[in-house]
Design a protein around this nucleic acid. Sequence first.
DNA 1: CTGAAAGCGCTTACAG
DNA 2: CTGAAAGCGCTTACAG
Lengths: 336, 336
Amino acid sequence: MITRRSTITDVARLAGVSIKTVSRVFNQEPNVRQSTRDKVIAAAETLKYRPNQSARQLASNLTFVIGMLYDNPNSDYVTEVQYGALQVCRENGYDLLIHPCHADSPGLIDDVSGLQHRVDGFIVLQPVSDILPLNQLLLENNIPCVRVSQRPFIQFPWISVGDMAAAEQMTEYLLNLGHRRIGFIVGHPEHGSSHDRLAGYRRALERRDIAFDEDLVEQGMFDYESGYTCARNLLLSAERPTAIFASNDPMAMGVLSAAHEVGIEIPGQLSVAGFDDSPLARHAWPPLTTVRQPITEVARLATDVLMQKLQGRLKGDFDHRLEAELVRRASTGRPN
Amino acid sequence: MITRRSTITDVARLAGVSIKTVSRVFNQEPNVRQSTRDKVIAAAETLKYRPNQSARQLASNLTFVIGMLYDNPNSDYVTEVQYGALQVCRENGYDLLIHPCHADSPGLIDDVSGLQHRVDGFIVLQPVSDILPLNQLLLENNIPCVRVSQRPFIQFPWISVGDMAAAEQMTEYLLNLGHRRIGFIVGHPEHGSSHDRLAGYRRALERRDIAFDEDLVEQGMFDYESGYTCARNLLLSAERPTAIFASNDPMAMGVLSAAHEVGIEIPGQLSVAGFDDSPLARHAWPPLTTVRQPITEVARLATDVLMQKLQGRLKGDFDHRLEAELVRRASTGRPN
DNA sequence: CTGAAAGCGCTTACAG
DNA sequence: CTGAAAGCGCTTACAG
């Protein structure tokens, strides 16, 4: 038994008003007498009326949905961004459509192109936000969007995190503990953050006049496995470092495993630091010293700025940097 | 400069055909001469035409979007389900709308009710799938959906995981190693899985005629913190267990931390087992013995069944159970 | 404060 | 193989 869902016309008829009046009530427009409003609401409840979004979308050219474009779908990072974005979406009556995409996929442009009628705008996360042709598509089609990235692109609103400063701070912290040979594991080369974190590490060394030693730097991929492999290389080298700074937490977990395996005590014989303060970091043993990225705040801010843009409340350019913060836990200490 | 996006009418005019013919080409309908088809495609490319989803939705009463309803937005479980669902969505030209909800929120029904025009159907995850009023809403409104749950509800397609059997198997495995006092940490009480996993533990004990000891069972909440607290209770008790089986991996991580903290060696003095085989488990130290839940498969299957239902290809009821599998790693061994 | 008309860009059902 | 007409359920722009 399929019962037809009721429409604005049904409600108008039952309430004895025009459909325009029903529309006014449901869109919270002014200029409706309270008694009329009540009649409409009562009728709508009786009929269990729900506005048809498709019709509303077609007529108004608004979808009340925003899209989120990202790579690396299985990361804590993305999960947390979704969480923050969803909060702000809810507050504004929007829904969230998630759309992971591979940065190097040839179909990417077509793919996103087909989405444009489905959403009012996009939040674009790294490293997708750094794909030039994609940004051009968005620009040409005049699609509102907010970029989370370490690099600007024309006049799109842009939110970044102070990765370089945080990496510099972490390195300084390790130096202050007395470490001189600090291994560094670089992140995925496609991420702007990877370069910034490495740059922060180098800058801290420079400021203390410590020579940059290529042998202490390994190229990782932001995942546990690469962290493990890089750590083994560093730990089994002739003159092993007394501390390893990994560019994110999963890689730092790999460092912990490699060290445990070889029987190196942490932090007694090796200090280990990560980046991101993902849940992993608190739950590791020993708990990881890391950098707290304000991911939820980034996501909330990005979504909020997009809302402002959609509602015409955003004036001028938007370019904001959030600062990351050092979190000291038990995985770091003075070298023996 | 805002350029109007081209419509089906523009394409029809340029190609010299009717809009119905353009519609046919874009919906891959038969009965269009190849030369006509080519003309339409050429015109569409010139105009960069993209079908307006809202119009299509309104006319056809189809959205090509499915919604995912779930609680506990920050878990690896949900991330992995999204991943599997997204794959199948893509293959079928669908998009995915994610909608976390609190099982105990009073606005839940209204909330989901308002979504019904936005999606063609829902995938409903535990424990949301066990909320009676929600299931009734879905049923009354004739909204296609697939439930992932340990409990059936009327004729909705239903996918479950053999949690009980897997928990029984894990307990047996620990018994076979020689453990007799096995602590158990129960999961969140609102999840059907929690009860099933406990039941599996009890059944294994029964089959070996080992008395069930309430003092060995602690109530957790599926998170790291509760696992840690429960483990402390068990480890600091008069006669501590030689093994602890936690109902999921985050809680097992809490057990590891509690043990490390007190200086209990793993697996020498304590075996630890988890459940889910989340990424955590492989990355822990020592790597966790756990139960591999076929989460991606569950998600893919659920989405596929929903697709079948939407396309009228599903005949009869659907009720499928996937089996979980024991994964032995270094966190378990013989008791000393 | 309220309403009648036109139109958003498609698909459906039908005709030829 | 192709098309003209009607309609999906709303909103916009205008009138009173």
